[in-house]
Amino acid sequence: MYVYAFLVGIFVAVVNGGDGLMYLMLVPSYWFLWAQGAKRCHDLGHSGWWQLIPFYGLWMLFGNGEIENNEYGENPKMERYRRLQSQYQSTSFNLNKQQVPPQKESGTGEYQSGDLYNR
């Protein structure tokens, strides 16, 4: 960005004696800002044009993004959520794996005749 600004500045200075630099700087800046703004709008489930609404920037700043995937694509944090979830699952208290003597498989899980004192 800064390299670009520098090169543009030199070119404009050659052509126009120093003026016009600001406008040329603004073009990529705005492109960048609007692109990022559009991405943030998509996080919130809105179109990128919403960022032109006055004070919408505050919503962009403080609003919570949608957790589920929406029409604009997958939640970029979903991978992190999935990783955390699998971490919790692996440390959760799965008592089925603890100290259980061999059991007879009973199919549906419902009581069958003969299961009375099943061990």
Partner: peptide
């Protein structure tokens, strides 16, 4: 009487 379950009560667990 039904057989008593072996004592799996485990302090460490």
């Amino acid at each position: 009487r039904p057989a008593v379950l072996p004592d799996y009560y485990n302090e460490a667990f």
